[in-house]
Write a protein that binds this DNA or RNA. Structure first.
Lengths: 150, 150
DNA sequence: GTATATGCAAAGGTTTTGCACAGCC
DNA sequence: GGCTGTGCAAAACCTTTGCATATAC
């Protein structure tokens, strides 16, 4: 059931927090754990909700501030998806979300398929794109037909 | 200075509005004109602001409703970019925005470079992605080095 | 004349911010 | 003990919605 655990774990992050002079609080532990335990992406709100199930009374603003800190440290990254503001682990494999701009239907594309394109972009400008947790808009097959037949 | 004008123009959209039983109001004309006149993407708010410079007193809710209508008709599409909710013309050529998740730096990639990847996705699922007005997140060359050297 | 679009105002939701207090180191 | 992080509350912001009025057809 369990996937390959990424080399980034709670202890590692906690260690780096301390090493950088940040403090390790129960809230931060819980937020880090929740974020690492999430497959795919998660909204700050959702983190707040799930975390406060374990550690009672974690404030939303704390969640926002902690996620921002984790992003500064390079562990997570944010995206603006259809569902709003979302965080995801940097570099954790996954799939690309294709969202139809017309009907909203979502499809998935294995991340392997993006490798050649990723290489191309990296060669072009040194920029290393992360497709795995970002939606890409377009038209699904059905809506494309509709469009063409008009 | 002027780019190739796309075949979609204000008159055409106005015509289709009428043909579909929608009404053509000064507000709608202005919103359509502003949207078509925009290179790249634009936020509903920005449309509202620019439009009300010409047609005084266009309400934000009207802008939202009109943009939604234009999306239904297939002229525009929306995205959630770094700057928030944005609309852009469907299928107007341009370039891909690469945004560094770390430092926020933006780079551009000519849309031609995406063609092979676009074909690949289309073959895979019939989904036709539109990269030209959507940001793609990742790490720029500089931030990538920082990341690696840690 | 009638049905649709607009403006207005209020509500809803998310994110940000300032400040006093709590708690990690 | 000092400084950082948290909670609280309020504010800021964007977007949506209901309803009366205006207006395109």
């Amino acid at each position: 059931m369990s996937h390959q655990i990424s080399e980034v774990n709670v202890a590692g992050i906690v260690e780096e927090l301390r090493a950088r002079g940040h403090r390790v609080t129960p809230q931060r532990r819980a937020i880090v754990a929740e974020t690492l335990g999430t497959e795919g992406h998660i909204a700050p709100q959702a983190v707040a909700k799930k975390v406060s199930e374990r550690v009672p009374g974690v404030n939303a603003s704390t969640v926002y501030r902690t996620l921002e800190l984790l992003e500064e440290l390079g562990y997570v990254s944010h995206a603006h998806l259809e569902d709003g503001f979302q965080y995801h682990l940097v570099g954790r494999g996954g799939h690309v979300h294709l969202v139809c701009a017309r009907c909203g239907r979502q499809e998935a594309l294995p991340v392997e398929k993006t490798v050649p394109f990723k290489r191309l972009i990296e060669k072009h400008s040194g920029f290393s794109p992360d497709f795995s947790h970002f939606s890409i808009s377009g038209l699904c097959a059905a809506c494309r037909k509709l469009q063409d037949s008009r």
